[in-house]
Simulated assay, not measured.
Amino acid sequence: MKVSELSRRSGVSVASIKYYLREGLLPAGQQTATNQADYGELHVRRLQLIRSLIDVGGLPISRVRATLAAVDDEATPMHDAFGAVMHGLDEVPADDRPDDVDAAFDEVQTWMASRKWHVAPNAPAPHRLAELIATLRRFDFPISMSYFDAISDFVEGVVEPEVEYARAMPDRTAAVETMLIGTVVIGQVIVEIRRLALEAVSYRSDGS
């Protein structure tokens, strides 16, 4: 297909496609003339993944490039390819953080070890969790790590079939895209369900 058809099929503008080609995010098509090339289904899928990383995941181009490198490298284990997506969704905070965040981070590390959760040292999530716990405590919420055990049991049960589903995809691109969409969208679903539950419990508390 020509670039115009690729644009129509993928929903990505011709200008963006040409930009992704220049940046090396999208492989070149089969050259048919000096200024023309043919593209195939793999290009459609690749553009869908790029747009998912940018539009759904909110990743900047630099992180999109790193994630795609993990997808393209067949020597990279699928777990590490998934990790490139997970870690690309956020940044590890700066080292100069408050003491209460440092203390909370140590608690998070101990808690993860007790759950036998292996998480890469460069993962942003433990740092963000520590920041959130420290913030709750500043507002006098009586939070300890054990408070999150039941929630974690539930979430672990949710993500197990999610990971299995992603790993069952026919290729690495589809697997990574599925993991990205699941992480962002199902994560937001859980947030919205919690909001609904808060309102419902508050209503019951009024004796209604």
Rank of each mutant, 00 (worst) to 15 (best):
R9N: 08
T32V: 15
G11L: 13
R22Y: 00
S16P: 09
G24I: 02
A37Q: 10
Y39H: 04
D38M: 12
A37N: 08
E23P: 02
E23L: 10
S16G: 08
Y20V: 02
V12N: 04
N35V: 07
D38P: 00
E23I: 06
K18E: 12
Q31L: 13
Y20R: 01
L25F: 00
L26D: 04
T32Y: 02
S10M: 10
L42Q: 15
Y20T: 02
A28T: 11
Y20P: 01
Q30L: 15
T34N: 10
N35C: 05
A15V: 14
S16E: 13
T34E: 11
A28E: 11
L21Y: 01
S16F: 08
V14T: 11
S10P: 09
Q36Y: 09
V12C: 03
Q30M: 14
G40D: 15
L21Q: 13
V12E: 02
K18L: 11
A28S: 11
V12D: 01
L21M: 10
E41H: 13
Y19S: 08
V14E: 08
N35L: 09
K18S: 07
G11Y: 11
A33F: 09
L42V: 14
S10C: 10
Q30E: 14
R22W: 02
Y19I: 12
S13E: 03
Y39I: 06
R9I: 14
G29A: 06
G40E: 15
L25H: 02
L42K: 15
E41S: 12
I17Q: 03
Q30Y: 07
Y39K: 04
G11V: 13
I17F: 00
T32S: 09
T34I: 14
E41I: 11
A28H: 08
L42E: 15
Q36R: 15
Y19T: 14
I17H: 01
Q31R: 15
R22D: 08
R22T: 12
K18M: 08
Y19N: 10
Y19K: 12
G40I: 12
G11T: 10
K18A: 07
S13D: 01
V12K: 03
E41K: 10
S13I: 01
A33P: 00
Y19H: 13
E23G: 06
A33G: 12
P27M: 05
G29N: 03
N35Q: 08
G24S: 01
Q36A: 13
L21N: 06
L26R: 05
G24E: 02
T34P: 00
D38I: 14
L21T: 12
D38W: 11
R22A: 11
K18V: 12
E23T: 05
T34D: 06
S16A: 15
Q30H: 12
Q31Y: 00
N35K: 11
Y20K: 04
Q31G: 01
L25D: 02
R22C: 05
Y39R: 04
R9H: 09
L21C: 07
S16D: 13
A15S: 14
S10L: 11
P27Q: 04
A33K: 15
T32C: 04
R22P: 03
T32F: 04
S10H: 08
A15F: 06
T34S: 11
L42F: 06
E23S: 07
E41V: 12
R22M: 05
Y20N: 03
R22L: 07
P27F: 03
G11N: 10
D38Y: 11
V14G: 00
G24T: 00
L26S: 03
L26Q: 04
Q31V: 14
Q30K: 14
S10G: 09
